[in-house]
Design a protein around this nucleic acid. Structure first.
Lengths: 230, 230
DNA sequence: ATCGACGAAATTGTTGACAATAGCTTCGAT
DNA sequence: ATCGAAGCTATTGTCAACAATTTCGTCGAT
């Protein structure tokens, strides 16, 4: 196959997910320039695709788009990360409460299994698995709550935090602190205690905020290789 | 001036605000098709401008963009409006709490004046003024809270509710119910009682949800004149 | 009369070339 | 050597024509 450039709205989606992936993998660092032509070459896509994909990413708050000056990976300050987490606390509190109140008991029971696996992962020192379970737990609760709007907002907010979430998860002693919080959320949701579930979710994210407060200033905008595998 | 078509990123902004305005004025009804050429003619803009503006509006959730089938004004079901309002309750609760806790006392005092004007407007039966004050109050609290992220999300969510907010405000007896709720929010914020402020904000929006529940199904997608004055 | 296939019109999507701008380099004057 | 101006390059923005697709109407067969 010679010159199979992706194109159209499929290409647009492909490009945006490629950039998204590169972003959460750390291949693209905050502040880095995103040049349309470079991207279109490395991803074998039309410049138009890239352009549209960048617009999408800008709408999601992942990329900053300055007229006539191109696109950069958006820099999220610690202060903003904290505000994002405060919003998450409010919204995940809502989801946890609703999940506890309205989700069918069978689904709620299913959370226990995640809790067990979390305990195992932490006991075994498997941070990657724990991190994945973490994401799964939050997603499942949002799903169970039936709050599609809140779920959408949360996805957005989490997308902007990839860099911080990554750094936090690797903090020594962090799992020991967050595991009981997660278990408390699970317990409250399974029990059907909406009030407790909301409180537990909020407490968990308040603890994340504490951790963020103890975070050094963001790294300066550097340039890095951009091997965005197609 | 002969053929002064707007163009470029300025045109893009103009077109999107024109559509936004038409949307909240009711000149465009949910479900209505938005044909690129028609818009570009009536607004004297390039088709490109219109296209990009529609993308922006789609990203904001105001317009639904189906590939190869064009753009429609997005239909927000009552169920979704309720979910939006639940998110608002969570986020405005956060803002109210923070405003009460952290905003300078002088700014907080300023809310009292809005309360007074609200009372007067309701007493005088001036629904439009009351509605405007309503918006101002919520905006001021979000501003005072310093929660820029939450403020942005709230703007988004409110944008999607224009149609419902319009209808609700005109409900007979509605002001009588909401006025004391607004006054309670103001009182708690001015007093500096974060907990009470959050509770009051939530109570207010819970009451909006009640009102929404008593709302008939959305009007079917019809076609209307699209005099989108330039 | 109803259904389906065909074709024409309307509408969106895509492309490549061109225009405009920002940023950098070079050069000259002090 | 430093500063500023001019020119050049890299990059984004714009456009108009063209291509692809959907939609709607028409016609014919049963």
């Amino acid at each position: 196959m010679a010159d199979n450039r992706v194109t159209g709205q499929e290409g647009r989606r492909l490009v945006s997910t490629a950039i998204r992936r590169a972003l959460s993998a750390g291949d693209l660092v905050p502040g880095q320039r995103l040049v349309e032509q470079e991207l279109s070459e490395s991803l074998h896509a039309t410049r138009n695709c890239v352009r549209e994909a960048l617009q999408d990413l800008a709408a999601e708050g992942l990329v900053e788009l300055v007229p006539r000056r191109g696109a950069r990976v958006r820099v999220v300050s610690v202060e903003e990360a904290i505000q994002i987490t405060e919003c998450r606390a409010a919204l995940e509190g809502l989801c946890a409460r609703r999940a506890a109140e309205h989700a069918p008991a069978q689904q709620r029971e299913g959370l226990r299994e995640i809790g067990t696996r979390m305990r195992e992962a932490v006991a075994g020192g498997d941070l990657n698995t724990y991190s994945a379970l973490n994401r799964e737990l939050h997603a499942r609760i949002a799903e169970m709550s039936g709050q599609k709007v809140a779920g959408g907002l949360l996805d957005r907010l989490k997308g902007q935090m990839v860099r911080y979430q990554f750094r936090l998860a690797l903090r020594p002693g962090r799992p020991t602190k967050s595991l009981p919080q997660h278990l408390a959320i699970i317990e409250a949701v399974v029990t059907g205690d909406g009030h407790a579930a909301e409180a537990a979710a909020r407490a968990h994210l308040d603890s994340v905020i504490e951790e963020l407060r103890a975070t050094p200033a963001a790294e300066p905008a550097g340039s890095a290789a951009l091997t965005v595998g197609a």
